[in-house]
C-alpha cells in the first residue's frame, strides 16, 4: 500500500508505528487534547470501571472508524456527519447490549455513560479528522492508539481514585482494616481534583524538561 496516498504534499511523512504511538502519549486524547472528558471524570471511581469504560470506548472507536475508512469514498461529503453519527450510534448500542449481557453489575456501575459514548467528541473527532481521509490499516492503527491512550488515561485516574478513596486496587484491599478511606476521591469532586493533579504533574514535568533543554542549548552556544 502506498504510504502517502492521501496526505497533502506539504505534510511531513508519518511512520506507521507513529500513527499508533502518538495516541498513547504525544497526542493523548485526555491528557493533551482534553477530549471526551465526561466519562473520564464520571466512571473512574474504580480501576475496573475505568478499564471497562476504556475498552468499550476503544471498541466503538475502532469499529466505527474502520467502517468509516472502508466506506470513505462511498459516503458523499455533504451527508458524512449524519452517516458518522448513525455508524457510531450503532456500535454504541451494540456495546450497551453486550455489556448488559456480560455483567449487569458493570452495566449499572457505568450507567448512562455507556450510551453517552455516542457524544464522546474523541470518536467523532477521529472519524472526521483521520478515518475519513486514510486507508483502512492506518485508520485501524490510529483508532487502536487513541483507544489505548484513552484507556491508559482512565486507568491513571481510576487507580489514584480507588487507592485513595477506597484503599484498594481493582477490588483488592491494600491497607488493611485500619485505613481511613479518603471518600471524597471516589465522589464527584475527586474526579476533577485527580485529573487536575495529573495535568499539573505533566505540565510541571514538561516545563522542567523544556527549561533543561533551553539551558543545555544555552550552555552549548557559549
Amino acid at each position: 500500500m502506498p504510504k502517502q496516498d492521501t496526505f497533502t504534499p506539504g505534510e511531513p511523512p508519518v511512520l506507521e508505528a507513529d500513527v499508533f504511538l502518538k495516541g498513547l502519549w504525544r497526542e493523548n486524547p485526555v491528557f493533551v487534547s482534553l477530549l471526551g472528558m465526561c466519562p473520564v471524570l464520571a466512571v473512574t471511581n474504580t480501576v475496573m470501571n475505568s478499564l471497562a469504560m476504556g475498552l468499550a470506548t476503544t471498541f466503538v472507536l475502532f469499529m466505527s472508524t474502520s467502517l468509516i475508512s472502508l466506506l470513505r469514498s462511498f459516503i458523499p461529503k455533504q451527508v458524512r456527519i449524519p452517516v458518522f453519527i448513525v455508524i457510531i450510534a450503532t456500535f454504541v448500542t451494540i456495546v450497551e447490549y453486550s455489556i448488559q449481557a456480560i455483567s449487569l453489575e458493570l452495566y449499572e456501575n457505568l450507567g448512562a455513560f455507556i450510551a453517552l459514548i455516542v457524544v464522546n467528541c474523541l470518536i467523532m473527532g477521529r472519524a472526521e479528522a483521520f478515518a475519513s481521509k486514510n486507508p483502512l490499516p492506518r485508520a485501524m492503527l490510529d483508532a487502536l492508539g487513541m483507544g489505548a491512550g484513552f484507556t491508559f488515561a482512565l486507568f491513571c485516574l481510576g487507580a489514584v481514585r480507588e487507592i485513595l478513596g477506597s484503599g484498594s486496587f481493582a477490588g483488592v484491599d491494600l491497607f488493611g482494616p485500619n485505613f481511613q478511606p479518603w471518600a471524597i476521591m471516589i465522589l464527584p469532586p475527586g474526579g476533577f481534583l485527580v485529573l487536575g493533579g495529573w495535568l499539573l504533574l505533566f505540565a510541571w514535568a514538561r516545563e522542567r524538561s523544556d527549561r533543561k533543554k533551553a539551558e543545555a542549548e544555552a550552555a552549548a552556544g557559549d
Binding site: 466506506l71 459516503i75 452517516v83 448513525v86 455508524i87 450503532t90 448500542t93 451494540i94
Partner: peptide, 13 residues
C-alpha cells in the same frame, strides 16, 4: 448512501 448505512445499522442492531 444514507439509506444503505441506515439499513446496515438496522440489520446489525
Amino acid at each position: 448512501a444514507l439509506g444503505a448505512v441506515a439499513a446496515l445499522s438496522g440489520l446489525l442492531l
